[in-house]
Amino acid sequence: MAIRLKKHKKGKEKKGFDKSKIKKILLYLLVSLVLFLTFKKGFLMVLFIVLTFIGKTMRTALGINFVMFDPLVFFAILIIKYMDIMSFFIFLFLTVFLADANAGNLTAGSLLNYVLFNLCPLISYFFLKNASLMVFGMVTAFLYSGLMIPIRIKPLAGDPFQTTAKGITNIIFVYLYIIFLGPVFELIFNYLV
């Protein structure tokens, strides 16, 4: 029933078990193992970047871009609190700026997101460096949503419903991630970093 012009037939002819996929998976596993054994910070960064991309892809695939359930803010908070500021900048550059630029979505809205993702955890870091993860994370989430909603609605003329939904769901999911996954990651950081 697919009504498309038949031009790319050759690609569909491949069937059966693909050995190259297994090779790729084995290579990724080997790289992860080497990273884990030699450079633990790098391993965690790669893990966080992959998980963030999975979250972003899920959001788009499910058609619910106005629900910010991807753990980007949560991971940014964890990295700045338990690792270092340099790793935090690299993480955001790769997951926000470079990802948007690569997808051709580098607009005023995405640039604002990038600035706010950088700014809000930094403010929390300078004022609440020794606070608990819950206080640190919630202040960051409230700051981000509190700044993002008015700026995106007024000067950038974004959709009010979507922007508000993004802001509120961001706070809710950061809270849930901190409550349920925060202690696990704290243990991991204490063990690895």
Partner: peptide
């Protein structure tokens, strides 16, 4: 996808990130 009045149509329910089209 299907046929309506002798024409082929497709209805796509989508949500994309970007400039402004991220709403459903």
């Amino acid at each position: 996808e299907g046929k309506y009045k002798d024409h082929y149509f497709q209805v796509h329910y989508c949500s994309r990130d970007g400039d402004s089209p991220s709403f459903i």
